[in-house]
Amino acid sequence: MDAIDKLKAKYPGANSWKMGDSPELAHELATLIVKGIKTASCGSFASYHQEEPAPRIGSYNIILDGQDVPVCVIRLVSMRLVRFCDVTEAFARKEGEGDLSLGYWRKEHQQFFTREGYFSDEMELITEEFEVVEIL
């Protein structure tokens, strides 16, 4: 039984995944979570329709680094549907990236969603807040 399987046995129903769209970004974001700087994330509403099973409040997630190594387990504590243009400075700070400003968040996430295949200032996002339950 590998490390991910052991964690899934400890946290039944947990998904394992890495954040971002490159190994470098996955490593950077996982490090921010472990340090307690990143306590939120978001994704396009369209991408959530493709996830199996869909995330839900209270669910556990095993966060992987850029080499698919588990670094921590988080628990989802909040989810909201928000348009890109309505994301707040407070949420941008909780994402924990760059200089923590809304301007930085908008620039980087516009680039991310464009790489993902679709961006609009009016696009709907699922914003998530989470807590770290175990650092590995």
Rank of each mutant, 00 (worst) to 15 (best):
H49T: 06
E51F: 14
I57P: 00
P55F: 12
K107Q: 11
L7F: 04
L7V: 03
E128A: 05
D65P: 02
T127M: 03
L81C: 08
T114N: 05
I126T: 10
G96I: 10
R56V: 10
A54K: 13
E134N: 09
R106I: 11
T31L: 09
I63Y: 11
V133S: 08
L25F: 05
L29Q: 09
A90M: 08
W105A: 00
E122A: 15
P23W: 04
G36P: 10
V132E: 00
I33L: 04
D121S: 08
P23Y: 08
E122L: 11
T127R: 03
E28A: 10
Y118F: 15
R93L: 09
M1W: 07
C72M: 01
K94E: 15
P53R: 04
D68G: 01
T31C: 05
K10T: 12
V71G: 06
T31V: 02
V77M: 08
L100N: 07
K6N: 07
F112A: 11
C85L: 10
E89K: 07
F130A: 04
V73K: 03
L64E: 10
I62M: 08
G36C: 09
T39A: 02
N61E: 15
F112C: 06
S16I: 12
Q110V: 04
T39P: 01
V73A: 09
R80V: 02
S47C: 09
A3W: 10
K18R: 15
R75S: 04
S101R: 00
V133I: 14
S47Q: 15
G20P: 11
N61Q: 13
S78Q: 11
A9L: 12
P23F: 05
I126S: 01
A14I: 03
C85K: 14
V34S: 05
V77T: 15
Y11V: 06
D99Y: 02
E124G: 12
A3C: 08
E52R: 13
G66M: 06
E128K: 00
